[in-house]
Design a binder for these strands. Structure first.
Length: 561
RNA sequence: GGGCCGUUAGCUCAGUGGAUAGAGCGGCGCUCUUCUAAAGCGCAGGUCGCGGGCUCGAUCCCCGCACGGCCCGCCA
């Protein structure tokens, strides 16, 4: 269980403001001003600061510096704080005590694998659903982006004590699947020398042909004389099984291991969609026109474009449509499967669907706060020198597995987690291969391996950190490095709060850089045995933090490189 | 027509109201008889897309515009 230094200082600021408010009889509206804590960019301004005095100046009608001084004088004394200052134009700056910081190196190293862990989400059951690519083709770099994002968020939630289930939703029940079956059937016929014409909505990718050949290898001409429609029906599930098996292999290569591969077809077979529609009907949000079942509320109507027929849940043939199925699926997870929260990772093209879901789920009495979605922008790739959107339906894509095989899972994961999900990514395969040895992922791993090397050397010389006196850590670089370690718990809070796993990579590079720099200038295993022990303890803390980070990122922590 | 995301160094990107805007790669120049040079240090490189506004203070919030991507299906 780890409380961040930031939280501790924030409480101190809050206490100081509360006391000032009481002592000086501040009016009530002063209490609405949040006591925000920030980290000054310039170390000359200390380690933490609050600008609350500047914000209070107007409601209190007093000069900000006077308010800052009043707050400064009421910050409770603490062994962790070396100084509290009021600074122009009205900041209150706190500097941590070097001695306290140095002692944290010991605390961190002693915490071991529990460093950063908390129980704040204990008892919460959370399903994280990610990737869930249509089972109609191989995993591409485009749909892979949700993988690391979802996986790392799942890791962090679990690290904070949540009971997390990782789910891959296999959408094997829809129209696209029928098309896929048809495309495979046509390719199957082609293998027997028939000349076939692909309809415009068929899948053009070569992977379809591969599935067809696999079926032919396995079953020969057994299905050759069936009518096309029959072939499509027979081949669709076979093809999907193959694709799902591939997805399991490829996600496994990425270090992603799902707890459940939930089939949409099982939901449909269970009758839960019908039951859900009945419930929606009871709640008065269903209309039927010409045998088509629509979801309809004033909000839904308002969102529709002019001329739009409505939101179809089930068509006139009785075939369930995506919105209908997805409402039932989410209801199943939140009402029957017992999750307190469902966190989905979706691609950018689902924006409209998300708006629909946000309207539909509350009509079933589901608290909207229990359904959260992280949307990520698309990955484009360089195709014949031009940036192209990937799409299986266009047959233009870059296979995830090829990329993993070429540059390794650690680099792939790191790459996807460097940019915020909001930002579109461009992937240049050639460049990625070319630069795979000059990669920030290696930079971070190398720091871990270097420390392992130091520890080996120490062991050879019979030296260990046992009984280390970390108060000997007084060099500025040692204090700075330890302060950086103290940011790790803050970072966990930020990643959780913002659902922003990319913050980990940014910090990891920063921490690795600080260590590499320290390494050059400070001999860890040296002539002075007590100083060596203290420094060993520090680098153990650094290594441990790196290991926690890499573990959360799902990247290996090598002892040798 | 409406909506969502983006626009920061040559390139890829951090920085979600604070004090002098950062990193990696690329460029130039240094540093290995050393606990791992997959590293370190230095230099060069910016009208934070443009124009307004709110604010003591804006790369960050609001409005407008431009550019790029995505969405507005009885596809998923």
């Amino acid at each position: 269980m780890t409380t961040s230094a930031r939280d501790t200082i924030a409480s101190a600021f809050q206490a100081a403001v509360d006391r000032a408010a009481a002592d000086l009889a501040w009016p009530d509206d002063a209490k609405t001003v949040p006591v925000a804590i920030e980290r000054p960019a310039d170390p000359a301004n200390g380690d933490f600061a609050t600008s609350v005095a500047l914000r209070l100046a107007k409601p209190l009608k007093k000069p900000p510096m006077a308010i800052a001084e009043a707050i400064r004088d009421r910050v409770p004394p603490s062994e962790m704080v070396a100084s509290v200052e009021a600074a122009k134009p009205g900041f209150v700056n706190v500097r941590l005590s070097d001695a306290w910081v140095a002692r944290q190196a010991e605390a961190i190293a002693a915490a071991g694998a529990s460093y950063g862990r908390s129980t704040r989400l204990a008892g919460k059951r959370i399903q994280v659903e990610y990737i869930s690519a249509n089972p109609t083709g191989p995993m591409t770099v485009a749909n892979a982006r949700g993988g690391p994002i979802g996986d790392v968020l799942a890791n962090v939630l679990a690290f904070a004590g949540a009971d997390v289930q990782r789910e891959y939703y296999v959408e094997d029940g829809g129209t696209q699947v029928k098309r896929f079956g048809l495309s495979v059937a046509l390719r199957y016929r082609e293998l027997f020398g028939e000349s076939v014409e692909l309809p415009p909505d068929a899948y053009p990718g070569e992977d379809v042909g591969i599935v067809a050949s696999q079926i032919k290898e396995r079953h020969g001409d057994r299905y050759r004389d069936l009518p096309l429609e029959e072939q499509s029906k027979v081949f669709a599930p076979m093809a999907i099984d193959r694709v799902v098996a591939d997805a399991q292999r490829v996600t496994g290569k990425l270090g992603i291991h799902f707890d459940t591969w939930f089939k949409q077809s099982s939901l449909l077979e269970s009758g839960y969609l019908t039951e859900t529609i009945d419930e929606l009907r009871k709640r008065g949000v269903i209309v039927e026109r010409e045998s088509v079942i629509f979801f309809e509320t004033p909000e839904a109507v308002a969102l529709r474009r002019e001329g739009d027929e409505g939101w179809v849940l089930v068509d006139a043939q009785g075939d369930p449509k995506y919105l209908g199925t997805d409402i039932a699926y989410h209801r199943l997870c939140l009402e029957r499967r017992g999750f307190d929260l469902k966190l989905d990772i979706w691609g950018a093209n689902t924006e409209y669907h998300l708006a629909q879901m946000r309207i539909a789920l509350p009509t079933l009495g589901i608290d909207p706060a229990r359904f959260e979605v992280v949307i990520y922008q698309y990955v484009r790739f360089l195709h014949e020198g031009v940036l192209t959107r990937m799409g299986r339906r266009t047959g233009r894509f870059l296979l995830l597995e090829d990329v993993i095989d070429a540059i390794g899972k650690d680099v792939v994961r790191f790459f996807f987690l460097q940019a915020s999900a909001d930002r579109q990514l461009d992937f240049d395969f050639e460049l990625a291969v070319q630069q795979s040895n000059e990669n920030p992922a290696y930079y971070v791993q190398y720091a871990h391996a270097r420390i392992a090397s130091i520890l080996r050397t120490a062991a050879e010389r019979g030296l260990s950190s046992a009984g280390a006196d970390v108060t000997l850590l007084t060099a500025p670089a040692e204090i700075e490095l330890t302060k950086l370690l103290l940011r790790f718990p803050e970072l966990l809070d930020d990643v959780l709060e913002r659902r922003a796993p990319h913050l980990f990579t940014v910090y990891a590079v920063q921490l690795a850089g600080a260590f590499h720099s320290y390494y050059r200038d400070h001999r860890v295993v040296g002539d002075d045995a007590s100083l060596s022990r203290a420094r060993l303890r520090l680098v153990e803390a650094v290594q441990l933090t790196l290991k926690q980070l890499l573990g959360l990122l799902g990247i290996s922590s090598p002892d040798k490189m």
